[in-house]
């Protein structure tokens, strides 16, 4: 437990050390928010204000998750390219654990510097009328979504052992997330067929499902979402370890 805490602290310090970069990230998030705000205001003109507020708050929540969630595939890629992975493999705990706990610390720093502003905007859009139960639902499902996204990123990161660059595959992932995760476009506006397909795939449970639950916070939906999240986490946990175990055997580090 102690080393996990140390790794989390390391991640936190890393985040706070680059606080200026994170603050500019906030600037970037605010531009993105402005675009979404005006676009959806133009789209939902003449409709009830509540519908607009629901839609834009959903998108802000998605932006918050995107901000906080880890970019493990890039971290792993950097380690493979620079050869630092060799040092990490020598440490007495697994590479994935190092990445996970450092990532948690970094996510806390990102939330403290950027996420909190986005969360306040989210609450403001809903007139600060969000029940404690809804916040609890959001926290639990967002935490599970974080773990699920970490596993997906880890699987993606294993490609770098073969291709030495992750940019292309990440672009591919972004494309999939764009349509199937519901983090750019509100999932409740999807056509029926796409909504049905997305509901079976893991991507929506990393993003869109949290937003949908925030809009309709029922115990039934909550139970359904966390069950599927846990199943996918379990599946991807074993898959990512299997892939990583195999990938590490093909790595060649050129001395140092």
């Amino acid at each position: 437990m102690k080393y996990r805490l140390t790794l989390t602290k390391m991640g936190l310090k890393k985040g706070l050390a680059s606080k200026y970069a994170l603050i500019f990230w906030l600037f970037s998030a605010l531009i993105s928010f402005a675009v979404q705000y005006f676009l959806w205001q133009a789209v939902l003109v003449g409709r009830p204000l509540a519908e607009f507020r629901q839609t834009i708050s959903y998108l802000v929540l998605m932006q918050l998750l995107t901000t906080v969630f880890p970019k493990v595939s890039y971290d792993l890629n950097d380690k493979v390219r620079t050869g630092d992975i060799a040092l990490d493999l020598l440490k007495p705990f697994s590479v994935e654990e190092q990445l996970f706990w450092e990532g948690v610390g970094y996510a806390v720093a990102k939330f403290a510097l950027i996420g909190i502003v986005e969360f306040i905007i989210y609450l403001w859009l809903l007139n600060f009328q969000v029940s404690l139960l809804t916040i609890l639902f959001i926290i639990v499902t967002a935490a599970l979504a974080y773990v699920l996204y970490f596993e997906l990123e880890l699987i993606l990161g294993t490609f770098s052992f073969y291709t030495y660059s992750i940019w292309g595959i990440s672009t591919f992932k972004e494309a999939v997330l764009l349509i199937l995760a519901g983090n750019i476009f509100p999932a409740n506006f999807y056509p029926v067929v796409l909504k049905a397909i997305a509901s079976y795939l893991p991507f929506e449970y990393s993003f869109g499902a949290v937003g949908l639950l925030a809009q309709a916070p029922t115990w039934q939906l909550f139970g359904q979402v966390i069950t599927i999240q846990l199943l996918y986490i379990l599946l991807f946990y074993y898959l990512s370890r299997l892939l990583l175990k195999h990938s590490i055997t093909v790595t060649v580090i050129q001395g140092g």
């Binding site: 073969y162 660059s165 992750i166 672009t171 591919f172 349509i179």
Partner: peptide, 22 residues
Amino acid sequence: YDLDFYFAIAGMIIQNVLNILA
């Protein structure tokens, strides 16, 4: 990074198509 290059090209094309779909 030849393999990744093709992934990126395909990814960007798909991303654009999906943006239009959205």
